[in-house]
Write a protein that binds this DNA or RNA. Structure first.
Length: 366
DNA sequence: GACGCGTGGCT
DNA sequence: TAGCCAAGCGT
């Protein structure tokens, strides 16, 4: 292509791209600005695969700030993958409570047990082997391989999606652009690789602290020179995303049932699905506003004392929920289901359960 | 490939 | 306030 020709808008080859210079600039930046995190080892030092795996699973779709206290709690309780493998399911679910995406906790335990029994307690090092383990997909396998074992791998998370989309000015919206992002990301990650783990973390740190979604700090970005989005003044706009559907609303009742001793009724939810395997309060079905909503797990609306002030709102990934609280004594003849149990009020705060229930408990107890 | 699956911080 | 979205995975 003649040098006088303007850069094509799409696709953008970024012909000024130089892998060696890119890697050098990014690693130099990382050596000065790497964040200090509990699971992270200083550049060059050996990582603990158990810590890398645990942190990466916790960090799936979850912010660093939210993960830090949970990571500390887990390594305090279970210092090795074998100890975690030997833990009771209930203890792990309670320790995870509040972090969200509870299938991760179920898979975490499955994975720990697989590593413990099938791999003699030692994490496999290849990406393909790692991907056979529960809860480890494309991203996490690549992250563990590179960060824990210094194996060259193309590590693509949401940060890398954004950095690559901007650096190469990819115009197609996510997730349509995933294949192109991967293709371009390979140009950054592949080749003669020194410090693959540091490079992967540098890419993610850059996305988390400099190449941020709303206001990218291009003025201090170590790779700004050849960033096609910055050169075109469209960094803030990228990556484009396909339009999202409006979240539906659902409503329902949540029950605060007490027995003669003042204990409160809790239950363990079914093992899969929403909040699967977690402890919660009994609720009605959650239905669209206006829909008939007398189908209750308790079938007790008629006898209950409704308190319209006991309302909580909670947003899940795919719907907005409004629950109305109902306080009532256990109905005459009430018998516990196998998954239900009584809890003394003093013991409730120590119980681990999802945020939607914690909101209601706080409302009742405060 | 589309969808189900939490939560909290930020704008 | 309401929307956006963060170190994704399993089905």
């Amino acid at each position: 292509m003649p040098k006088t020709m303007p850069a094509p808008l799409r696709p953008c080859k970024n012909d000024n791209f130089d892998q060696k210079a890119f890697r050098g600039a990014l690693l130099k930046w990382y050596d000065r600005h790497a964040r200090v995190l509990p699971w992270r080892y200083t550049p060059g030092n050996k990582a603990n695969p158990y810590h890398v795996w645990l942190s990466e699973v916790m960090l799936q779709q979850t912010t660093v700030q939210a993960v830090i206290p949970y990571f500390g709690k887990f390594v305090d309780k279970w210092s090795t993958v074998q100890k975690l493998a030997a833990a009771k399911d209930e203890d792990v679910m309670h320790a995870w409570a509040g972090l969200g995406y509870y299938a991760r906790a179920r898979n975490l335990l499955k994975c720990a047990r697989a590593v413990s029994t099938e791999h003699l307690g030692i994490f496999p090092e290849s990406i393909d082997s790692l991907k056979t383990l529960p809860g480890i997909g494309d991203y996490t396998a690549a992250a563990i391989a590179s960060i824990a074992f210094d194996i060259p791998a193309t590590v693509i998370d949401g940060n890398v999606d954004r950095v690559v989309s901007r650096y190469f000015a990819i115009q197609d919206p996510l997730p349509d652009s995933k294949p192109e992002i991967r293709e371009q990301a390979k140009r950054l990650f592949e080749g003669t690789v020194k410090r693959p783990g540091d490079f992967a973390q540098a890419m993610m740190d850059l996305g988390a602290t400099i190449c941020t979604p709303k206001s990218p700090k291009c003025g201090v970005c170590p790779i700004a020179e050849h960033c096609q989005a910055r050169l075109r003044g469209i960094a803030t706009e990228l990556p484009h995303r396909r339009e999202k559907a409006v979240q539906p609303k659902r409503v329902g009742y949540v029950y605060w049932v007490t027995n003669s001793k003042g204990e409160v009724l809790f239950e363990t939810r079914p093992p899969t699905g929403l909040l699967g395997g977690m402890t919660g309060l009994p609720t009605s079905d959650w239905v669209a506003p206006g829909a008939i909503n007398h189908i209750s797990a308790m079938k007790i609306e008629d006898t209950a004392v409704m308190n319209k002030n006991l309302k909580i709102r909670h947003t899940f990934t795919h719907f907005d929920l409004e629950l109305t609280g109902v306080k009532l004594p256990a109905p005459r003849g009430f018998r516990l289901s196998p998954n239900q149990f009584w809890v003394a009020p003093a013991d409730i705060p120590a119980l681990g359960f999802p945020t939607v229930f914690r909101k209601f408990v706080r409302l009742v107890l405060d």
